[in-house]
Design a protein around this nucleic acid. Structure first.
Lengths: 208, 208
DNA sequence: GTCGGCCAGATTGTTGACAATCCAGCTCGA
DNA sequence: TCGAGCTGGATTGTCAACAATCTGGCCGAC
């Protein structure tokens, strides 16, 4: 029951039904989630550990607001972690996985060509997920997943940034090529360059 | 009160009063910590988020056991994160901080020369802490701190490994030099090499 | 003898009530 | 008018009792 409350509340926050800074009142959540305060509190505790909400003693919980500075920090951490993961994926990739990467690359080029940005964004997520799966680095994977949760809003803005695919598509292609070539160093560099450009995009979007 | 219980229990685990795998029974902890089950449970929840304790539903909590594979993964993550932090420290270090680094380097050489390994180990911690302070990267810092907690036992073994100072002292000197030279790339490389050698040491110790 | 099922004690999960705290709006005096 | 202090309602913090679940040992059938 408490895991259920956690999952419900988490997805509600991630899909934006509660805005950053919004207060999360336990009694209201009890009704919303159809459960007791005990479970609600446990869920809030867990979400605080994920960095999605902040609880202040005697003052309750609210959705955590991630300022630009911190979004950049988080993405810097993601940059080095995904670099590590990409390098390890290059060292471990199987032939079957290599062709799966090829397929995603192909679909990405098609999606960008057809202007299907939503589809491209999904493929982006799928590519990064597959690379993490190939790497099989559970520690890095868990941290990356946690950090991604904290950035849903910002990520969303980046993926809708006009001209973004033109920058990121060739980067994705380089990452795929390096992994297929079993070249860890090249894969790490390509991944880091890719995510470094996300940081640039974050800053540009915020300046608007 | 709950924060107090958390702090007490955390330090008890870190100083090895509870061994990996040992069961943590709520009622016993209530006596040990002089508080109610409510607070004990909250503390266990928080420690689980830190990765120090694992709680299984209806089966209670025990001190988490970190196998070698995972210790290596954790140290790999630390390698790239501390690399990031070292690079940033090189970009931001002030003159005053640079001379503080110098002082630590000097004390380290003295400690190794005098065979004071415990003192060297403390200085090691102080050096890494100062570099993180100079970098001012709160996101990376928090993650590194969490990971360090999970490895206390392994770290301890590494620092007592004979011949370890002979390997790590010159590495520390290179890190200090690169930061003082305001050379982020060199600082990152030096830090990564240093922590890569910790991974080697971890594996050697486990093979005994 | 041993294997499966079952029982009792131990342990954790959950609840509802109560205590402590915070906060917004009000009162009142200067 | 303005600010200090107060008060009542809303919200969170804590507890102790009860329910659910697990664990290890016992018993009987084979």
């Amino acid at each position: 029951m408490t895991a259920e409350a956690y999952a419900l509340l988490r997805s509600a926050i991630l899909r934006g039904e509660y805005l950053p800074g919004e207060r999360l009142v336990e009694a209201q959540l009890c009704e919303r989630l159809g459960t007791s305060r005990f479970n609600v509190r446990a869920a809030l505790q867990d979400l605080a550990a994920d960095g999605l909400v902040k609880v202040e003693r005697n003052k309750g919980a609210h959705v955590r607001k991630v300022p630009l500075d911190e979004a950049v920090e988080i993405t810097e951490v993601r940059m080095v972690l995904e670099g590590l993961v990409a390098a390890r994926a290059a060292a471990r990739v199987s032939d079957e996985q290599a062709s799966e990467l090829d397929e995603i690359g192909l679909l990405m080029r098609r999606a960008v060509g057809a202007g299907e940005f939503r589809r491209y964004s999904d493929l982006n997520e799928r590519l990064h997920g597959l690379i993490r799966h190939i790497a099989g680095h559970r520690t890095a994977d868990g941290i990356i997943e946690t950090l991604r949760g904290q950035l849903v809003r910002h990520q969303f803005m980046v993926s809708l940034h006009p001209g973004r695919p033109a920058v990121s598509l060739p980067q994705h292609e380089r990452i795929i090529a390096a992994i297929q070539a079993h070249d860890p160093a090249a894969a790490e560099v390509a991944m880091r360059e890719h995510i470094a450009s996300v940081i640039t995009a974050l800053r540009e979007i915020d300046a608007l």
